[in-house]
Amino acid sequence: MNIFRFAGDMTHLMSILILLLKIYATKSCAVGISLKTQELYALVFLTRYLDQFTDYVSLYNSVMKVVFIASSLAIVWCMRRHPLVRKSYDKDLDTFRHQYVLLACFVLALLLHEIFTFQEVFWAFSIYLEAVAILPQLVLLQRSGNVDNLTGQYVLFLGAYRGLYIINWIYRYFTEDHFTRWIACVSGLVQTALYADFFYYYYLSWKTNTKLKLPA
């Protein structure tokens, strides 16, 4: 464990908790938040942590896996079940066909994995899925331009998580003799590029919104 990875995990957790708090605590509507992206994230954790009960890495690792699964499912539950929130979720805007993404990632995982076992294929699937899970949110943001519920902190922590993980991989590459995580690194770079695109549209929406608000 290095400080970059620990900080990356913490900022990742913070981004999830900020979104959960925003949706649940303020009972605010979930306009502008893509339920599909949140469902894909929950699926990423569920398929990645299948080894939760078979391989023990550390207490930190086991606890964080439970926290990630619980918090991501809590967001999905809130957006699907919570009477106040679900009414406001605009499903006719959140129309990204994520089935295709699921299928593409699964086929890719069947072709590209470290070892052809059930857990390893689903681990690779979760890595690819995490890279593209932001797409429904990106499309929704391009359509709605609404950043009210996607607070700046959420985007900030999401970016910090990606940046710190890339530094973590560079650090491990130079300090550990045979550190090769090609699947995670290449997919992580694709994910970071998509996040950069998301941040760009977030900034544009935020800028136009502030301009719109000015004359009022």
């Binding site: 995990d9 990742h12 990645r48 391989d55 990630f68 973590n168 995580r181 995670a184």
Partner: peptide
Amino acid sequence: EDEAPTKDEL
């Protein structure tokens, strides 16, 4: 056979 490295990252 070479074992896949343990998945120590979250």
